[in-house]
């Protein structure tokens, strides 16, 4: 797993209804060293998805550059794994085939990529679902498979755009705990986008607060790991950090 630099990134959209250009992202710079977990948080419409889509290579940049593992990137590539809010699993492939898709694209043979896929499915407690189709899974399991599919391709960085926003609150907490556990075991470099302040604080080493397309402030999250909701929910430091980030977001 490698590092990611976002340098002076900007994005201007043309709004056909207003008939003018609107700036969605302006001069954003974020450093994510190897193995770090960074959350980007901000109110709806502040440009989070736009940033992530540019880093993923789905959207051309209007200015600035994105450097992964020392190389400037443009266009999508397997060095940046993406976890989507809408799971985006291939409905016509089984869970196992979905997870093995990335290794297959890398040219890994059938036996070996199945072993890789099974290993990662086991990591997320999904071994029993290997032969099922995505539409046979619950929303929470679909999101787990989405995370596992991205991880199994061993990307330099993992990009996650509100991946837990559409599951119920109970499942969301479980998924958050699982993600911190997987992060500790494998130490992937992660950018995690959310509008949910406790989620951002719970997961990350560092929270970047975004406001109107600009970085407002960065907050270090020096909470000990492993983290679980059971202990953190009453933790004074967690409360202090959360309310600090919340104030920033609300002032945004």
């Amino acid at each position: 797993m490698k590092s990611l630099s976002i340098r002076n990134l900007s994005k201007t959209y043309f709004d056909p209804y207003a008939g003018k250009h609107v700036t969605a992202v302006q001069d954003v710079s974020i450093e994510v060293p190897e193995g770090e977990f960074v959350s980007i948080v901000g109110p709806s419409g502040c440009g989070k998805t736009t940033i992530l889509n540019m880093v993923a290579g789905f959207l051309p940049v209007s200015g600035g550059e994105i450097v992964v593992d020392g190389r400037a990137v443009s266009g999508p590539g397997p060095d940046r794994g993406v976890v989507f809010q809408s799971h985006a699993l291939f409905p016509w492939k089984t869970v196992l085939e979905n997870v093995a898709f990335g290794p297959k694209m890398r040219g890994v043979g059938p036996k070996e990529r199945e072993a890789i896929a099974r290993d990662y499915l086991a990591l997320a407690g999904l071994s029993h679902a290997a032969d099922r189709y995505p539409n046979e899974l619950s929303g929470g399991m679909q999101q787990r498979v989405g995370v596992v599919r991205a991880l199994a391709n061993e990307p330099a960085v993992l990009l996650m755009d509100e991946p837990f926003a559409s599951v119920d609150a109970q499942t969301r907490m479980t998924l958050q705990e699982e993600l911190t556990r997987i992060w500790q075991e494998r130490r992937p470099t992660i950018i995690f986008i959310t509008h949910d302040v406790p989620e951002a604080v719970f997961l990350a080493n560092r929270v970047v607060v975004l406001s109107k397309g600009r970085v407002l402030e960065e907050v270090e999250i020096d909470l000990p790991r492993p983290r679980s909701w059971e202990t953190l929910i009453e933790d004074e430091r967690f409360k202090t950090l959360s309310s600090r980030v919340l104030q920033l977001v609300r002032s945004a």
Partner: peptide
């Protein structure tokens, strides 16, 4: 869904895979 195509690209799919898979 556009996310499906994006997912395939970011998992390293080439044009042929995109077409057939």
């Amino acid at each position: 869904p556009h996310a499906l195509r994006n997912a395939a690209w970011s998992l390293g799919a080439d044009r042929k895979t995109m077409l057939f898979e």
